[in-house]
């Protein structure tokens, strides 16, 4: 999805001369086409994310549409205050693109795990936070953010994600959750490429007669409360799935919204990284297994919830 977005940025820049791309010295082997095509609108600011965020805000204040590119923690956490004060508080047309969301850089170690970013960004007033699940969603989200403008945060994985959407998303409105599989017994609400694990878990459960739906949630903020309310009223169980710490991300957002619904409503289970669990070095798949975010782990969560 990284290369899909890099290509999408070239298309956006072609269509709109206000589009600029900044990178914090990352994106080697994916940024080059943009840099070659639009050398005047591409700047490698160096390894200096605070400055990058401030520059992005300043550029946007002169009428530019700016995209910033770095690895999740550097793009978001290193310069969170610049994102808050300079970009979001001014409503600047800046989209921060974070690569390596969740456990994408698993084997690189904890410094490179992007697992608190959704909590930190989604609380900023007026921001859009988007997390595509596959390359198709990535292209569609970028196009939508290009139209809509910032402030926005786009969290990507890296590359090699399987395609989950069989049909084009071009005509699909941006914002609502996307149904990948309907189900009567409950639903997984997943965000990012780990949505593939939720789909696989739903298949495993179907073999045992349990009909779980799967919804991709590409937009965490603003959350699609309409669909969520309907699902929470119609179904007994909602399981949020994300490569993120348990609190504050998609699970947090869903739990907040469902808790305020009157009357009978679904039980909400959050699947994510439990910081109480001992840490472990491993790749993305290994860490998904560790935190029971793989298909087997997710299916087991549903089974034990139903047997409780």
């Amino acid at each position: 999805m990284r290369s899909v977005v890099a290509e999408g940025l070239v298309a956006l820049a072609e269509a709109d001369e206000r589009v600029w791309l900044l990178t914090g010295d990352l994106g080697f082997s994916v940024m080059e086409p943009f840099a070659a095509r639009f050398p005047d609108r591409f700047i490698n600011v160096g390894i200096a994310e605070q400055n990058m965020a401030g520059i992005a805000a300043g550029l946007a204040m002169t009428g530019r549409k700016v995209f910033c590119w770095s690895i999740v923690n550097f793009a978001v956490i290193r310069c969170l205050e610049q994102i808050r004060n300079d970009i979001v508080a001014h409503g600047a047309d800046v989209t921060v693109i974070g690569i390596g969301g969740g456990f994408a850089y698993g084997s690189h170690g904890y410094t490179h795990h992007g697992v608190e970013d959704l909590a930190m960004t989604r609380v900023l007033p007026g921001i859009t936070v988007a997390v595509p699940a596959d390359p198709a969603e990535a292209a569609w989200v970028l196009a939508a953010l290009g139209r809509q403008g910032g402030p926005a945060y786009l969290r990507l994985n890296k590359g090699g994600e399987p395609t989950l959407h069989e049909t084009s998303l071009d005509a699909v409105p941006f914002g609502p959750m996307l149904c990948l599989r309907p189900g009567r017994d409950g639903a997984f609400l997943a965000t990012g490429p780990v949505t593939g694990e939720a789909l696989a878990a739903a298949s495993l459960l179907a073999g045992q007669g349990i009909d779980m739906g799967v919804w991709s949630v590409p937009v965490i903020q603003p959350l699609d409360r309409e669909t969520l309310t309907r699902l929470a009223k119609d179904l007994p169980l909602l399981v949020t799935v994300e490569e993120h710490v348990l609190s504050g991300g998609l699970g947090g957002a869903v739990a907040e919204a469902v808790a305020e619904l009157p009357g009978p409503r679904a039980q909400v289970l959050r699947a994510g990284m439990d910081p109480a669990q001992p840490s472990r070095n491993g790749g993305q798949e290994d860490l998904r297994r560790t935190y029971r975010l793989d298909s087997t782990g997710l299916a087991e969560r549903v089974l034990s919830a139903r047997n409780r």
Partner: peptide
């Protein structure tokens, strides 16, 4: 402004634009 160290980066962006 008010949090220190923000003005000059913004100024750089404006100057570029």
């Amino acid at each position: 402004t008010g949090s220190l160290g923000h003005g000059l980066p913004i100024a750089c962006g404006m100057a570029l634009g």
